[in-house]
């Protein structure tokens, strides 16, 4: 007996506008770059600012990507995420100071090895702290948003004070590794080498994260869990374990972002994570809670806009990202690439 239904499925071709609609957020980045080109009189300044904006965006993305997944998977609002940025920066810089010989040598290979060691140390320590943070602070307040805000803020303060106890209350000024100082000249524009490195690292991490999320079983589970965690459990997967894994990975990425951000600013303080949290929140919100792609686009927009506006109208730079958030939320109230939740 054939089980074919009486009705036949049909596929209707969508119109051009409908087909382009999902790509609209992606197009915002080139549109922003084009607007910058039109608004900034000198091409060399525009190029410098664009690379600087992309580098800043990539670093914010690295710090924010874990937080968006943590929220998407378990509805956990982690105000303590900035603590991992600070810890990562201090651990990474300590390793760089310890490897002063390698970091100060006029050899790109030795400098990158020192940077790699600093990044790995920062990620291992922040991953471990993230595991403990989830177990002690986050786990007891699943499902209670107000309590999450209060206890994770408390956790942030405690960790900041621990940093002060261990490394002292003063800010630490740092020098980038020898061959990553200074810049290159391209088409009349001065482009800092470190910013190019940050763009490269951010891009590689984004592509790696996309590969894991799109092409592996664990990525499938994470994406499905962000959308409907209950159903993922009903299919036999232990979502809590996945969540802990994502929390640890997100903390480690925040730690890596912290090292890179510290070297970008060339100064680190115990409060640096708290300060950068504003940008992280903006990126996570405009990207769409739980969306890695949205987070990536949002971070690039924030980085580019901040650099362009700081050049064109420095006084407006402070509120430019808030303006961007308002504009995007008026266009798409759930963020640029919302993850539809079915709970």
């Amino acid at each position: 007996m054939s089980l074919a239904p009486d009705h036949a499925p049909t596929m209707a071709r969508k119109g051009l506008a409908e087909r382009l609609e999902p790509w609209a957020p992606v197009l915002l980045v080139p549109v922003m770059v084009l607007l910058g080109y039109l608004a900034i009189p000198a091409t060399s300044s525009w190029l410098t600012l664009t690379v600087s904006g992309l580098a800043m965006g990539m670093m914010i993305f690295i710090m924010a990507s874990g937080m968006t997944l943590v929220f998407g998977l378990m509805d956990v609002i982690n105000f303590g995420h900035g603590a991992f940025v600070s810890i990562g920066a201090f651990v990474g810089v300590s390793v760089l100071i310890w490897l002063g010989g390698m970091a100060g040598a006029p050899s790109l290979v030795l400098n990158l090895l020192a940077m790699g060691a600093a990044a790995i140390a920062a990620m291992v320590v922040t991953g471990g702290v993230g595991w403990a943070f989830e177990k002690v602070i986050v786990k007891p307040v699943y499902g209670a948003h107000l309590k999450q805000i209060l206890v994770t803020m408390g956790g942030l303060i405690v960790i900041e004070q621990l940093i002060v106890v261990i490394w002292g209350p003063e800010e630490i000024f740092i020098r980038r590794p020898e061959t990553l100082q200074g810049g290159l000249t391209f088409a009349g524009a001065a482009i800092e080498k470190y910013r190019l490195l940050a763009v490269g690292v951010g891009l590689v991490l984004f592509l790696a994260m996309r590969f894991v999320l799109r092409r592996t079983k664990i990525g499938l589970i994470v994406r499905a869990g962000v959308e409907n965690g209950e159903m993922v459990e009903a299919l036999g997967y232990r979502l809590r374990l996945v969540f802990v894994g994502v929390f640890i990975a997100g903390s480690a990425l925040a730690g890596l972002g912290g090292v890179m951000w510290g070297l970008y600013q060339e100064i680190i303080t115990a409060h640096m994570g708290q300060e950068v949290m504003i940008l992280i929140f903006i990126v996570v919100i405009i990207g769409g809670l739980g969306s890695v792609e949205g987070c990536f686009i949002g971070a690039l927009l924030v980085g580019l806009l901040q650099n362009y506006i700081a050049f064109l109208e420095p006084k407006v730079a402070l509120i430019s990202n808030i303006g961007l958030m308002v504009a995007i939320l008026m266009w798409r109230p759930m963020g640029m690439i919302p993850v539809v939740k079915a709970k």
Binding site: L220, R223, A224, V226, E227, N228, A234, V339, V340, A342
Partner: peptide, 11 residues
């Protein structure tokens, strides 16, 4: 098979 179907629409 839940009442709300539990489909992952993004997948």
């Amino acid at each position: 098979v839940p009442e709300n179907m539990g489909i992952f629409g993004d997948l």
